[in-house]
Computed example of a mutant assay.
Amino acid sequence: MCAFKLSEITGVIPALVTPFDENENLDEARMRSIVEFLIGRGINGLYLTGSTGEAFMMTLEERKRALEVVVDQVKGRIPVIAHIGAISTRLSIELAQHAEKAGADALSSVPPFYWGFSQDQVIGYYTDITNSTNLPMIAYNVPLAGLFGFDMIKRLSEIKGVEGIKYTAPTHFEIMRIKAEIGKDFIIYSGADEMAMSGLSFGADGIIGSFYNLIPETFLGIYDAVKSGDMARAKDLQETANAIIFFSLSRNPIAAIKRGMAWLGADAGYCRKPFGNFYDAESEAKLKEDFRGLKRDRGLTGVAFLDAL
């Protein structure tokens, strides 16, 4: 039985990076280290093997093992959400049933993609998965896999076991509509890092994102500021976050996140190809210098990985 109800899984939830070593092998020691690093910095949960976690470049066995390692390291201190998305319903069910046995608190999945599945086929996908376990499902609304319209989200919410959505789309007015028309108990996670303030202000229960691995203190501040009604503070923090996000996007962002974590003593390893990496000292030194320039030019303060440079 899971330790946390979905309604209890709120706040700032990093979409956890997956550490690989120099030879692209899953690095369990680094995985344990970054889990401790993030828990120590006050994050409220972890979202595993999603897009940021490079799930679609991992085998099923690697995805299972990554979850086992994280659940073992977390030991019930914070909630763990397992992303089990795959194009094949059968593979997703295998991952979902494993996640339940391993001790995950909730499931999440992108819809099946690539072949342009019909709405009925997508509904069938989520129905089959939720029928296979007792864990709550968080549907994933993301452009890479095809965005859901409101009517489709409403259909998904009617599936027994689908209790929330990870909403990674800019149409945040729909968050307000979901809460009003589907119900306040349908849990919404805002999934666009650069719009965390917006998602929360429109009613999201929590935020899930990539850069929460690197700058959790900034997003924890945004969450607290919005919840307390200090929108000026939230805006300042979002501007800081966005400066770092947009600066990183042209510099192999997942690899940059991993290197930035390493500068704080939480080495998150490397990415799998075809993602780029900062393997050699020269390229990493250039990345550091670029971030020093960003800090200086934008006057950024209170960002731990920049202060460590």
Results as ranks from 00 to 15, higher is better:
Phe4Pro: 05
Lys5Asp: 12
Leu6Arg: 05
Ile9Gly: 14
Ile13Glu: 08
Pro14Val: 06
Pro19Thr: 06
Glu22Ser: 14
Glu24Arg: 01
Ala29Val: 06
Ala29Arg: 01
Ser33Val: 09
Ile39Met: 15
Ile43Pro: 13
Tyr47Met: 07
Phe56Trp: 13
Thr59Ala: 11
Glu62Gly: 06
Arg63Tyr: 10
Arg65Asp: 09
Ala66Leu: 10
Val74Ala: 09
Arg77Gly: 06
Pro79Ile: 05
Val80Pro: 11
Ile84Lys: 06
Ala86Phe: 08
Ala86Cys: 14
Ala86Pro: 02
Ser88Ile: 01
Thr89Arg: 01
Ala102Pro: 05
Ala106Arg: 09
Ser108Glu: 10
Pro111Ser: 12
Gly124Cys: 11
Tyr125Glu: 14
Thr130Trp: 06
Thr130Val: 12
Thr130Leu: 08
Thr130Lys: 07
Asn134Lys: 12
Pro136Ile: 06
Met137Cys: 05
Ile138Gly: 03
Val142Phe: 08
Ala145Val: 14
Ala145Asn: 13
Asp151Thr: 05
Met152Arg: 00
Ile153Gln: 11
Glu158Gln: 13
Glu158Thr: 09
Ile159Pro: 13
Gly164Ala: 14
Ala169Ile: 00
Thr171Cys: 09
Phe173Met: 10
Ile175Thr: 14
Met176Val: 02
Ile178Ser: 09
Ile178Asn: 11
Glu181His: 02
Glu181Gly: 02
Ile182Phe: 03
Gly183Thr: 12
Gly183Lys: 07
Lys184Met: 01
Phe186Pro: 11
Tyr189Gln: 10
Gly191Met: 07
Ala192Val: 12
Asp193Lys: 07
Leu214Gly: 12
Ile215Cys: 00
Gly221Gln: 04
Gly221Phe: 06
Ile222Glu: 09
Ala225His: 04
Lys227Phe: 10
Ser228Asp: 13
Arg233Glu: 01
Ala234Glu: 08
Asp236His: 14
Leu237Asn: 01
Ala243Gln: 04
Ala243Leu: 01
Ile244Trp: 05
Ile244Gly: 09
Phe247Trp: 15
Ser248Arg: 04
Ser250Pro: 00
Ser250His: 12
Asn252Cys: 03
Pro253Ile: 14
Ala256Glu: 14
Arg259Cys: 10
Met261Leu: 05
Leu264Asp: 11
Ala266Val: 00
Ala266Met: 02
Asn277Thr: 10
Tyr279Ile: 13
Ala281Trp: 05
Ala285Arg: 05
Leu287Thr: 11
Asp290Trp: 01
Gly293Trp: 02
Leu294Met: 02
Thr301Tyr: 06
Ala304Trp: 01
Leu306Thr: 11
Leu309Asn: 10
